[in-house]
Design a protein around this nucleic acid. Structure first.
Lengths: 358, 358
DNA sequence: CAGAATGACTGAAGCGCTTCAGAATGTCCA
DNA sequence: TGGACATTCTGAAGCGCTTCAGTCATTCTG
């Protein structure tokens, strides 16, 4: 129709074509009750004919100061983050919760300091930020505050003004430890999530582990060690190994280290299901029977826990609820409401087939 | 300092505070060479003092007509999509490729027609769209075209004007089938990815399967069936089952159906590693030895294939390269360059331990 | 039938930034 | 010493849209 590659039509073009004001065209899209149905049809028809696909999202955002996006901040690269199925479940629940309001997710992968780079956060087009288990002191958190963005944190210490959802990491960990104690185990090993130690992977002193910049790691560790201590097992006698990666494959090297210690632990407390599965895979390679010679407990109860071989004893947390609540909190903050009291979801032990008597 | 909750400072506020023009402050952030180092420092100091965190991303986008985001469109919900590890790997490679240019990823999950809803696409703040294995005819694709957004498609039929990267699905599938034929198998089963049939999951006629709206599904199917046909096995004699879900857990019910057929196939051609793992899990439950009584071949060679028990024979495609190339293509299109010729990555059989003589 | 109420549309002021064509000043070399 | 050039900064025109206070008819109401 047109002679050459023209610029995209704007609202003004449509207004001119129909012979109405720009405000009317805007209303045709945003407030149908503000004009007659007849005129609205004319407008929409003209728009279609001109190839106008609706208000430019960026211009609309500027005028409304709403982008319609939620920034989701991760502590690591996408492949690292998504190698944990718990994230997929949580993220999907969050997306589902905010979808009816038309919010999209802007993914901000982590850099080197346990969160996305500050400049990425400052440049992100989002109305609200959700932090998923970032390290304490990650610069992304400062950037969010400086920008004045509402913030929801998941599994992190409470930030002033932010909304929070998390689970009872400490209680869940304690339950796992108690279960193994009840089965008569006395030689334990703890397979820890990453702590941002350097170099990563390998044995950790209890002190280093307690200084982890990740809140959930600290909490779970405390739950394990306190419970063992109550049973007379000194923290110094419990080897703690930091995972070399959070995927099954990535964690296997460090699982080897933990299982080749002498004396070998008879029971492993793992800070995620993936770590537990890695430990089981390594045990198999070493010819160890699970749970005959080694008991293993995971954490999260993500989908793979149920169909692993053998099915994994683990600490269940409601990942769907966690994501959904985070999404609802984000919407509330967007609505201008204040952050409610933090939500702490329960964590309960699910006994399957990877634990047995010592 | 200020008496009340003030509006956020703008570039003008900083300009006024320093006593320079707005353009100068803008230059301080975007073109440091346009002003003296001394003045620039003054500006930045004043900005910090006022709590100005840099140019408002939305306003900047409007002025530059660049959002700095890439829309990543999926055919399904996030949890469904991410239950396939191949996606994580590809997405991460893409993110890594575009990260140096500061691009973020806007995730658009799928709705009901094999892609994101059109209105979500029209409202998305992104400069370029990447379609990851959407169904043919998904309305999201039309929306992208109408908006005039540059498009990169992954594993899909070529769209005019779009850039494309994919793998040799047909050749890879053919290699898998040939391998099993060479091992002497004659009774096959095909475990297919979803085809958007209704109801989903269960046996599919060859004709229905060939009509799948997913390009990679069609290609792989053709690769399997043509190769078997060359060996004298009629397509009509090969049961095709559509997976009830793409995660291991989700696919297990339909795997049951496929493995309980009489006569039972001795070899399974699976359109993804996850489907293969689901089939193996079900075989185990049925007391079938893999590969003793059942040979299984996957597709993708995603990370879990390597450490599954037993390690999975599968068709390897370079997922990292796929993601990286998609990212590079996106950047090229952003740069105004034309879409180059489509890239077809090789797919080669990796023989591990889930296949054996019939 | 005057006045109030309703419905349909418009004018214009922003939203906060980038950018480009100058203006103003200073520097350099012939 | 005077014109050519750099260097540094500014004015103003957008980018495309939303929204609010009106304006102008038309329809109720008592």
């Amino acid at each position: 129709m047109s002679t050459t590659r023209r610029r995209r039509p704007t609202l003004d073009d449509v207004a001119e074509a129909v012979g109405v004001s720009r405000a009317t065209v805007s209303n045709a899209y945003n407030r149908p009750d503000q004009l007659s149905a007849h005129l609205r049809e004319d407008v929409l028809r003209a728009a279609k004919q001109l190839g106008y696909t609706g208000p430019n999202p960026t211009a609309r955002s500027l005028a409304t100061s709403r982008t319609g996006a939620i920034a989701f901040m991760l502590d690591a690269s996408l492949s690292a983050a998504f190698s944990d199925p718990a994230l997929s479940v949580t993220l999907d629940a969050l997306a589902t919760a905010v979808d009816p309001d038309g919010h999209a997710l802007l993914l901000l992968p982590g850099g080197d300091d346990g969160g996305p780079r500050a400049d990425r956060v400052l440049a992100a087009q989002a109305d609200v930020a959700v932090a998923y288990s970032l390290a304490d002191g990650a610069s992304a958190l400062t950037a969010v505050r400086d920008r004045g963005l509402p913030l929801v944190v998941i599994d992190q210490p409470l930030v002033p003004g932010a909304a929070r959802v998390g689970c009872d990491d400490r209680g869940g960990a304690a339950a796992a430890a108690r279960h193994l104690l009840d089965l008569g185990h006395r030689r334990f090993g703890i397979f820890s999530a990453q702590c941002l130690s350097a170099p990563r992977g390998g044995e950790l002193s209890a002190r280093n582990a307690a200084d982890s910049r990740y809140n959930d790691t600290r909490e779970r560790l405390t739950g394990y060690l306190d419970t063992l201590a109550e049973a007379g097992i000194s923290p110094g006698d419990v080897p703690i190994w930091e995972a070399s990666g959070m995927s099954v494959q990535g964690a296997m090297p460090s699982a080897f280290g933990l299982l080749e210690r002498d004396p070998r632990p008879t029971a492993l407390l793992c800070m995620s299901d993936q770590l537990a599965l890695a430990a089981i895979a390594v045990a198999r390679q070493l010819g160890l029977d699970v749970p005959g010679q080694l008991s293993v407990v995971g954490f999260d109860d993500a989908p793979p826990a149920r169909w692993s071989e053998p099915p994994l004893t683990t600490v269940r947390q409601d990942l769907v609820a966690k994501g959904r609540i985070a999404g609802e909190l984000a919407l509330q903050l967007l609505d201008g409401r204040r952050a409610p009291e933090p939500t702490r979801l329960p964590a309960e032990l699910v006994i399957r087939a990877t634990t047995a008597r010592a």
